[in-house]
Computed example of a mutant assay.
Amino acid sequence: MSQDPSPLFQPFTLGDLTLPNRIVMAPLTRNRATPGTDAANALTATYYRQRASAGLIISEGTQVSPQGQGYLQTPGLYSPAQIAGWKTVTDTVHAAGGRMFAQIWHVGRVSHESLLNGGAPVAPSAIAAKSKTYIAGGFADVTPPRALTLDEIPGVVGEYADAAANALKAGFDGVEIHGANGYLIDQFLKDGANQRQDAYGGSAENRVRFGLEVVDAILKVFPKTRLGIRLSPVSPANDTVTSDPAQVFGLFVSELSKRGIAFIHVVEGATGGPRDNVPFDWVALRKSFSGAYIANNGYTRDLAIEAVRDGKADLVAFGKAFIANPDLVERLRRDGPLNELDRATLYGGGEKGYVDYPALADAA
């Protein structure tokens, strides 16, 4: 195994935070929050501590409210127990030398009535997604949503801001807004899910309104240098597509750039699938944003090294590779072998497939 001097392994300044390398642990839903409280716990802390060598850890999606939950045993950031649970995690990660952002999340229509006390999920429009979610007993079709009313929207925006404030209380170094993969902000952005006839639907200018209101609300309680957002312009994840990705995401990213947030984290192509599913100019998107660009989706070691070397990305996020390889940074640095992912343990369960993957020294 050889050491590699690539810029991928060199420090980077993200906002006002210095990262030791440009490898990001992507947000990864694992469904292991404490039943009853949906709080992170000691096992969560062990899992993230093992991966603290990442330049930056972005937490699993963390719902901003009970209504924002779409999957069984995903953690929240709206109750004292959840703040305390995450504080244990961030303290543990910091003690191991790591840096960690909270990904705050509202799933919108990608939910099930069993997770919402029998109620319907909310969405920009009452259009059901052809998608599934994870509930007690396994995967199930999502429940058809109802459209948010105009007078409800400010309250949902406020929930994002409250969650960001709670992330500070919980000791996170920053926040990533989940604006990707067919969840609520992405639903507003994409006309396949948003067919409103009011100020939040129709034109690209109207469809970016909700996401920008969320950003602006958070910026009243949170420093812009520690704020980013995840986007997936052409991903059909959770049955959420748009007819005009270049127009709507070009406008959205331009407005985000004006606000001076630290980064955009971009799923290039179909989430977990082809990178070329729809033609899209990723270079133009990157150039339209003044902050850092985190690239994601299907990156290998060689592709990541090339992207950073050629200026196509400032940082590269890895997902499933971090699940199976807690020491992924060192494995990539040495060009070492990777553990095989146990897909049967991705969602729910305990230690197996969560904190028992070996590091290089253990695997030798």
Rank of each mutant, 00 (worst) to 15 (best):
F9Y: 12
Q10P: 02
Q10I: 01
P11M: 09
L14V: 01
T18G: 05
N21F: 12
V24W: 13
M25H: 13
T29E: 09
T34H: 13
A45H: 04
Y48F: 14
A54P: 00
E60Y: 07
Q63W: 12
Y71V: 07
L77G: 03
G97N: 10
A102P: 01
H106N: 13
G108E: 06
S111V: 10
H112V: 14
A120L: 15
V122K: 15
A126P: 07
L148K: 01
L150W: 00
E152S: 09
I153N: 00
P154T: 06
A161G: 06
A163P: 03
A180C: 09
A180Q: 04
L184Y: 07
R196S: 09
G201H: 04
S203L: 05
E205K: 12
G211E: 10
E213F: 00
D216P: 03
L219I: 08
V221D: 09
F222T: 12
R226L: 06
L227C: 06
I229T: 05
D239R: 04
T242D: 10
A246N: 02
G250F: 13
F263Y: 15
I264M: 08
V267G: 09
G269I: 10
F280G: 11
K287T: 13
R301L: 13
I305Q: 14
I305N: 05
G311K: 01
A313R: 04
D314T: 02
F318T: 03
G319C: 09
I323A: 07
D327I: 00
L328K: 05
R331I: 01
R333N: 11
D335N: 15
G336V: 00
E340T: 15
L341N: 14
R343Y: 12
A344K: 13
L346G: 05
Y347H: 12
G349Y: 11
G349I: 08
G353P: 03
A359T: 14
L360A: 11
A361T: 15
